[in-house]
Simulated assay, not measured.
Amino acid sequence: MLSASEFTVGSIGHATPLSLVLPRHEHEETILIAQCQSGPAAFFLSEGQRFKWFESSSNNHWHGLIIPNVRIEVDETSVFDPSRTEARPGTVIRHGTQLVVKAKSLKAFGGLDPIILEDGLASTTEENAGFFRWRVTLADKYERRVLFQVFAQ
């Protein structure tokens, strides 16, 4: 359950990175607001457009329940080496100071784009680690709640 102070309702154009947007009806989608080179990016988690993304800073088309300040947790048992195993759409990779998710653009054909989930993390070596399973959580000083789980396998 969410307390009233933990969410707002509106368009994704007003959501900041690391907000989870939950649908209110069957024509809305579950979306994680992340970051791309030019600003906020919408990353689809629900089945309709699963693991696709687009720039979302001025978008007033997609709406929902906006939960800001969510956290990303990776399942360490799903770790893989991205230099030996190909990353699939929806996998997250810890690289340098970032945690990115691999996503397909809604606009273009081709490969996967790295969409930034977190930046400014402690720097890693030249090595990377990927994860097929991860989740979106919301925590306060009393409890941690799992809001959405991702399985990219």
Rank of each mutant, 00 (worst) to 15 (best):
M1W: 09
S3M: 13
A4D: 09
E6Q: 15
E6W: 02
F7A: 01
F7V: 00
V9H: 09
V9S: 11
G10C: 07
G10D: 05
S11N: 12
S11R: 08
G13I: 08
G13L: 10
H14M: 09
A15D: 01
T16A: 14
S19L: 08
L22S: 08
P23E: 00
R24G: 08
R24W: 01
R24T: 00
E26W: 12
H27N: 11
H27D: 10
E29P: 00
E29Q: 15
I31P: 00
I31D: 04
L32I: 04
A34M: 11
Q35T: 15
S38A: 15
S38H: 15
P40G: 14
F43Q: 01
L45R: 03
L45D: 01
L45F: 08
L45N: 03
S46Q: 12
S46K: 11
F51A: 04
F54C: 06
F54G: 03
E55G: 09
E55D: 10
S57Q: 11
S58H: 13
N60Q: 13
H63D: 06
H63Y: 07
H63V: 04
L65H: 05
I66S: 03
I66C: 03
I66T: 01
I67F: 07
N69M: 08
N69T: 07
R71W: 04
R71M: 11
I72H: 01
I72S: 05
I72W: 02
E73D: 11
D75C: 07
E76Y: 05
T77W: 10
T77G: 08
T77S: 15
S78H: 02
F80D: 06
P82M: 09
R84H: 12
R84F: 09
T85D: 10
E86D: 13
E86K: 15
E86M: 13
P89K: 11
G90H: 06
T91S: 12
V92W: 01
R94N: 05
H95T: 12
G96Y: 07
G96D: 11
T97F: 06
Q98A: 14
V100P: 00
V101I: 12
V101W: 03
K102G: 01
A103I: 03
K104Q: 10
S105K: 05
L106A: 08
K107E: 04
F109R: 12
G111T: 08
G111P: 01
G111Y: 06
I115F: 09
L117I: 14
L117P: 02
E118I: 12
D119V: 11
G120T: 12
L121A: 05
A122N: 10
S123T: 11
T124G: 11
T124R: 14
E127H: 13
F132I: 04
R133D: 03
R135I: 04
L138I: 07
K141T: 13
K141R: 15
Y142V: 07
Y142F: 10
R144D: 03
R145P: 05
R145N: 02
R145V: 02
L147R: 03
F148M: 02
F148C: 00
Q149E: 13
Q149L: 04
F151D: 15
A152Y: 00
A152R: 08
